[in-house]
Design a binder for these strands. Structure first.
Lengths: 153, 153
DNA sequence: CCAGAAAGGTTGCATAACGAAACCAAATAA
DNA sequence: TTATTTGGTTTCGTTATGCAACCTTTCTGG
């Protein structure tokens, strides 16, 4: 019995979850955003089992989220770094972090600030073209022809 | 061997993933945002096994992301609806959707538009207090005292 | 009212994912 | 040279997942 495949459901959310939807992948990406690059550092900072970490890094590399860079003199020392695709997950990770802090309280000692001003970040929001924030009730789901979807039932 | 617990790692991202970090939870939430409320509708629209769906809905209710509302005349017909906490995941789901569309191409027939103007949404971004978009390189990670973190190693 | 279908689960079983620890080869440090 | 670090793989036991069958209560058609 293989896990349900999410990349053929015709849903981009499912497709994204197929790549980073397991328990560990986004945490590895988040850790990489903090500057971690070496296998052992991921292992110690996350408290993840070695085989799982090995598997996750391989999957992230296969999916183009990270790259394995050879930094050894004779080729047996590696670094794992984010690609542009991986760095682009910053929005997702930050939205998730803020959501957790809003609803579960401040459980994180770490804070993110604007490097230039030193001020904390603004809450991540969905916005329209004019930059006004939108809730899920302010949007409509339409198909490719622009017709509204009624797929509740 | 129980799964690694993410809610005691001192990381709000991990804490969030502890609640919605499995393969299915965010898809259930996304489906609820489309208007789905009934057990069988989730089942058919997602193609999820009944016991898994049952388990996920229970977990989402336990975590305050959804509520089970009794809609039967004599109490055996239910609806599952998003709470405010659940609706607040709209940002996360939308960021994930847009990320997937940017990097994996348009695999979704569905589009989100502003209900008022009918225009497509703006890309979700992390912003500073002035509303200027920030990448991961534009931010600094600091501890509670404002001192920069150097936890790469 | 009665038969059948539908809603919302639960249970059993087989397979896949996961975690901890042991083991291992190459490269580096002492 | 020996010890240690790095980046894994293997083994084994537990947990998660998928599928199908079953079960109870509630609608629905006649």
């Amino acid at each position: 019995m293989t896990r349900k495949r999410f990349d053929e459901m015709g849903c981009s959310v499912a497709c994204a979850l197929n790549e980073v939807g397991d328990w560990w992948s986004l945490l590895v990406v988040k850790q990489a955003m903090l500057g971690t690059r070496r296998f052992v550092d991921f292992q110690h900072n996350l408290g993840i089992a070695k085989n799982i970490l090995c598997n996750r890094l391989s999957r992230l590399v296969d999916n183009g989220v990270m790259v394995r860079v050879d930094v050894g003199e004779h080729g047996k020392r590696y670094e794992y770094r984010l690609t542009d695709k991986g760095r682009d997950l910053f929005t997702v990770v930050t939205a998730l972090r803020q959501w957790s802090e809003r609803w579960n309280g401040e459980k994180d000692t770490m804070q993110l600030v604007d490097r230039q001003s030193g001020e904390p970040l603004a809450p991540v929001t969905v916005q329209n073209q004019q930059g006004q924030p939108l809730t899920v009730r302010d949007v409509r789901f339409v198909d490719e022809d622009g017709k509204p979807l009624e797929e509740a039932g």
